[in-house]
Design a protein around this nucleic acid. Sequence first.
DNA 1: CCTCTTGATCTACCATACAAGTCCATACTA
DNA 2: TAGTATGGACTTGTATGGTAGATCAAGAGG
Lengths: 230, 230
Amino acid sequence: MNAPTPLPLGHSKAPSATRGVADRLRQAIISMEFPPGTRLSEGEIATRYDVSRQPVREALISLSRIGLVQVLPQRGTIVTRISTRHMMQVRIAREALESAIVQRACERFDPVIRGSIDAILETQARAACEGDYMTITAADSQFHAALATGADCEMIWQMVLDVKAHMDRVRHLTLQDRDSMRILVEQHRAIVDAIDQRDPEKADHAMRHHLMEILRDLPRVLAERADYFE
Amino acid sequence: MNAPTPLPLGHSKAPSATRGVADRLRQAIISMEFPPGTRLSEGEIATRYDVSRQPVREALISLSRIGLVQVLPQRGTIVTRISTRHMMQVRIAREALESAIVQRACERFDPVIRGSIDAILETQARAACEGDYMTITAADSQFHAALATGADCEMIWQMVLDVKAHMDRVRHLTLQDRDSMRILVEQHRAIVDAIDQRDPEKADHAMRHHLMEILRDLPRVLAERADYFE
DNA sequence: CCTCTTGATCTACCATACAAGTCCATACTA
DNA sequence: TAGTATGGACTTGTATGGTAGATCAAGAGG
């Protein structure tokens, strides 16, 4: 235990059962296949995904750390209900983190990644015209990830991913029309422009404005689906 | 699985074996009992703490999510080495989050918690005069936690705790003299003053100034203990 | 009608056994 | 000697059985 051996690290992209279950569960929760309040059971999920209970259990531990599920000892596991108080903090946290990312991006930004962003935005713009929801959201995630990576903030992006999961879940409830999709792309362009101009204040403002809009329709959903909230 | 039963939640303060191992391991890593690069083994830790491998394994999963350990599939688990690049991102993230907390505190702050802060600062000031390192750090954690709680940002505080672990580990390497301890208390007072005056800009500046100092001695440690870094 | 007890039935938790991949020292081969 | 198999001693990953605690419904007693 005490030997500080080198143990060279070959990076881990292990497609383990635990990770597989975690990813599938995470996606199922975000996409509302398992709506808030759904009662999960280690055994049932194990049967459904054809694995043992142990990987399921470990996946649930990861998800409970993010806050997507609540594990109640000896009682059960439920998909976390949406709380406006919690969502408020989620928004604040993501704004703070992503604002910090773009501000750092104004100081230094990997030119190679900068080049790839144009392609992402173009893909997203085309998808917006066609109303392709899946491509839109995928490109959105790629865009924000590229910002973080280009600014050398990959670890911060991991933190953003956790809070992002909560926002993605409510976004699934607010159906997006094509106009708001086009606005989304415009906002992305504004962020990139600010970074190109090395204007931290402008970038900060553009990012916060962009993120603010995501939870705009939260009150309406609250009225329609009160059972999803706590 | 699909029944959205109420399942009333009695808050979980479960003193499970997993949590116990996780807390002890976390403390051992932060306090440098297990220095960076230490090779951990599920089996050895299980024997040492007199539990089965499973709780140890689940504890390591939690710690790996924080980034305190690295689990290399089929190869081993090591205490994460300190990386200046990673610490830079840690600092940025914590500054962003805690800055957001104090700015929100300027908008609204629980008066009861505001009252308790004075006692915390007084305790810390006394400990600073006596050079009581343990009490200082405990009060420091209480202070920042009180800020978050009073500003209704408890969930954000959980995120801060994760990045804070990395900074606490570095701080354990930089021995603190009594002068820097007194400065610490002064900086805390400045933050509270800014909140009392409802001055977000001042609070933001005070918090960032406070956090900046923690990693001031990082380069010196890097020179002294290169084996702790990657 | 209300309160309490009891037992069946769930749950997550933990321990143990097994499987599979990695590393390394040793021995064998060219 | 240098290079290459090879087998054993690790490691983490997965499966399964058993245990304690929580819930709830039915029934006894007031």
